[in-house]
Amino acid sequence: MGETLTAMIELIDVHKSFGQLEVLKGVDLTVTKKEVVVVIGVSGSGKSTMLRCINGLEPIQKGKVLIEGEDLHGPHTDPNKIRQRIGMVFQSFNLFPHKNALQNVMMAPLKVQKKPKKEVEQIAHDLLIKVGLAEKADAYPDELSGGQQQRVAIARALAMQPDMMLFDEVTSALDPELVAEVLTVMQLLAEAGMTMVVVTHEMGFAREVGSRLIFMDGGVIVEEGDPREMIVNPKEPRTQKFLGMVL
């Protein structure tokens, strides 16, 4: 089948500006199936923006974004359809506060995919079990800890049965003792073969789970490679400097 060679995500010379400020200055990236690409870099390096460009939350000024071969900005593409295949988890969780955990997970399959309620409820329950929160199904977001909220957010994204997942600094807003529970869920997901792009500062996660490490600076990808190798032996001076600061 040549399955492993399928490009899930392909960014070709992507440029993105906010007004005068150019945040992405020509990014090329190919993510293949089951890869876990970990993106690191200082804040302002463009890593979160790159992630948001992958599912079209941010319009781009130049270049191409291909999702499983489909041009996200193509004239006949419905970006809403493509986003259904891309799960995203945010730094600030963004759970829907007027819905409980189960309803948060159920909403998109119900409203977007129009699946029958019984089926969706089953899916949602299974996902909450998967993220270890079966007993919190009825809890509202403000009754959950940050780590629990983030795990519900992961379950919510998974409910659409996406082909790939984007994680945008998902542990940065968490108290240190809550980080592990979220990373564990992400690790399980990676082991189950999910294609993932993970923007993070967690170098441990990058080393243990990442299949590729990308270092961004100044709106471009400066260096990429095998995480275990690159962390110990970065080639580019900018990467060396950054890793020297965070390790």
Partner: peptide
């Protein structure tokens, strides 16, 4: 908050 709209859109909602 803006994140609510973004989360909804990222789930494929129009």
């Amino acid at each position: 908050p803006k994140g609510q709209m973004e989360a909804a859109r990222s789930l494929g909602m129009t």
